[in-house]
Design a protein around this nucleic acid. Structure first.
Lengths: 175, 175, 175, 175
DNA sequence: CATGAATGAGTCTTCATTCAT
DNA sequence: GATGAATGAAGACTCATTCAT
């Protein structure tokens, strides 16, 4: 729906795809911004749920397992709606209620932090879970994005996924 | 100038900030796309130059020195015009001549790759400079962006810079 | 509405005269060209109808009667919207859908031809109805136009009307 | 130069074709209207000269000769610059100094009237040279225009020319 | 005098928002 | 409540006109 960017998504198009009239849309949302925010929030929740589910899997025994799960989930999340995911992180003006819908990355960071704390014994002693979570979230997200947006070759041969894993595990593990 | 995104940057606003009339703008550029492309290309070149200059410094003895220089330069580059830098990587439609102006990250990646090859003896044997350059570029850029956009606290206390350094050096060094 | 020519007729002015907003206009017409074409087509149809009605009058006994009716109808038609009539024949770019709206004169020529064929016995033997219709249509139209546009004096005293009649009847009648 | 209509002829294009700078144009003409008026007046004079020359030819013995010469000259005049001729009669706003440049048809009418008076003995007694001149001028011009603009077929086989001749001679000659 | 870059009013067109039905 | 026609502000772009060089 928002494949063509915030400005590209006209209220008319949104209404049409939603199968309702513009009038109806404006009965529930005060303006375009709120409307797009709701749209985004829905997708954001879905993405966060995918990541959280992956990290909460009790089958994850080690940090390495967690990293692998996170990378896999990151790829899945990106595929939920690549364009939207991108817009979600980038294009939507960070103002008002949109900001609220925007904190996907913060929620994911929190999930990663919880996971790291649960495996604190495996981490490098100098590693602050709160900080490390930011680094890991930012890094994994950026590499997944890069792979999907510009480096499809490194994606298909699995190279970038392996590199991402190496990057994260070396960063977290005791030297 | 383009703080509000490609669509937010109206030709009128661009003209006003540039201190000329719209008419003058259209004397030199055939349409908005070309105009924005020129704007972006200028900044992109500046950014690439800053990074390349940092990595080409003959005073850099080790990979660690290079990483430090890259991180520092990344921060500087981001400050050249944070908003534009963002747009540059994200919001501009990747089509036509705009796409051409867009390959800042590829040019930076090349510069990093050159640097890594020049210091191949210091790298982990399993490290392919071409791939590692993509990872380092993506990673350093994303963390600098994150720091400036959402985590100013981690920026001011230098924490994120240190973490970025640790992340990159551990990733590149022999285990 | 289009008194000042195709270029003089701005969408804004058209909307204003029509008593609607520009937005509404664009809800029904894809662009200015289509809008003007519709305007013209409407008037063209009206004009053609007036002429056809005059020539189809069963009360017309002779060619002379028909010529008189045609001249009268031509004057009436010209008064429907003098400026528009002018544009219609002259100024509108003869391209695309506009061209379609333009063939008023051809439709009128056809009507005259039909009339002439129905009265073939009264015509000069050397008179080809198809050709004569073109001549009569062009001639009557031009004189009506001239009378209304530049020679109001000859119009008010009925002189030009009488001359037009003499011109056409002598042209058509057997020598 | 004005092939594309009054509005289509931009001052820039006119200057370019004239091989001078816009600035120079504005040194001689106060505005676009005056500029176009001068352009038109030049062509108008040329056209009037062609017609007058044809009608003043002492070799013309009869009214029929004159009509033939007029028709021929009309065709020639139309070919001098068909588009311009058209615009000249139609499209240019009939205001201000432009009106002055516009009276080609009146000057041609005068020439025809002079010719008719010189051959008054051949004319139908009911024929007022002043009025007949208007009729002939309007009629010949309109048919030439029609032939060139919409009925090229009738032009190439000479049919319309012959019809025009018949129309005019029958109109002028004693019954 | 000639030049042509600069100007900005005026055009067409889109789209968020409202409101009568 | 739902609808979608109507609205008009705002944006991209053109071109007649001016004026510094």
């Amino acid at each position: 729906m928002i494949e063509r960017g915030y400005e590209g998504a006209t209220t008319g198009r949104i209404a049409e795809r939603a199968g309702v009239s513009i009038g109806s849309l404006y009965q529930y949302f005060p303006n375009k911004e709120a409307l797009v925010a709701a749209l985004i929030e829905g997708h954001a929740n879905e993405i966060v749920r995918v990541i959280e589910a992956a990290l909460d899997d009790p089958a994850l025994a080690t940090v390495a397992d967690g990293i692998r799960a996170l990378i896999k989930a990151g790829m899945v999340a990106h595929r939920i709606d690549p364009a939207l995911r991108k817009i979600l992180n980038e294009q939507v003006p960070r103002v008002g209620r949109l900001a609220k819908a925007m904190d996907t990355s913060r929620r994911i960071t929190k999930a990663i932090e919880r996971f790291l704390r649960a495996h604190a014994d495996e981490l490098d002693p100098g590693c602050d879970p709160a900080v490390a979570a930011v680094v890991v979230e930012t890094t994994v997200e950026a590499l997944a994005h890069k792979a999907l947006a510009e480096r499809r070759a490194m994606l298909t041969n699995g190279r970038l996924e392996r590199e991402t894993f190496r990057l994260a595990t070396r960063y977290l593990s005791p030297s």
